[in-house]
């Protein structure tokens, strides 16, 4: 439990470690794509951490990184094929950022720093914690960006062929000033990330005092 909590709060990949910011800024224009991307990274983290933890003694030190990249790329390729077969709309929404999970700093970082040193249980829990931390962070940014930039909250749209249910809500009554397009654009992603980071640091400093 401590490892999971550590991954979500103390070692949050986005707000504390500041890793994997490229997909964070790119896919959070929509709440649904944010949590789906988060879940994809969570699945990849779990599988790679478990696999690497199991075979860590068989891999010589000098070929650690290429072997780990190979393992991560395999799981990402499998996930991409499964998504394109069963949820093609979602596969299109995530686009290039789905195969780019292979080079995500968090996945390789946790594989080298945790999975290659710790036992199976710790590696699994670390993957779960970091994955959940990443998912919650993306959801938080996606939540603010979609509401402010599109005046909506998409809970289920691309995954509706599976759930047989669509859920897109309008949050505020539309006016001349609202929604603000800026938040949907890439600059809005930086701005929102900065605001959320400032808020978290403010709350952290307040707690320390």
């Amino acid at each position: 439990m401590k490892t999971i909590k550590n991954g979500i709060f103390n070692e949050n990949p986005i707000f504390i470690l500041m890793l994997g910011l490229c997909p964070t800024l790119a896919v959070t224009h929509n709440f649904e794509s944010s949590y789906i991307m988060g879940l994809c990274v969570l699945i990849i983290l779990l599988f790679t951490n478990i696999t690497i933890s199991l075979i860590k003694k068989l891999i010589p030190k000098n070929v650690q990184v290429p072997t780990y990249v190979l393992i991560i790329a395999t799981f990402v390729t499998c996930l991409e094929m499964i998504l394109s077969k069963y949820v093609p709309l979602l596969h299109d929404v995530l686009g290039i950022f789905l195969p780019l999970i292979t080079v995500n700093c968090i996945v390789l970082g946790r594989a080298i720093s945790v999975a290659s040193k710790e036992n199976l249980k710790t590696s699994f829990l670390d993957g779960l914690g970091i994955g959940l931390g990443w998912t919650f962070s993306l959801m938080l940014i996606g939540f603010f960006r979609e509401i402010l930039g599109n005046n909506s909250l998409t809970l289920m749209n691309a995954i509706s062929p599976i759930t047989k249910y669509r859920a897109i809500y309008q949050i505020f009554p539309s006016s001349n000033y609202f929604p603000i397009d800026f938040f949907i654009k890439p600059a809005g992603a930086f701005f929102t990330l900065g605001l959320v980071l400032a808020l978290i640091n403010y709350l952290k400093n307040k707690e320390e005092k």
Partner: peptide
Amino acid sequence: MNKKFKSIAALTITSLICGILIYIVFKLTN
């Protein structure tokens, strides 16, 4: 020499297993 051989063997075996896994998923999804 032994170390080099071990490294190449580890990479080759991992590639092979990964290739087989991708092939299985490809066959299942197509």
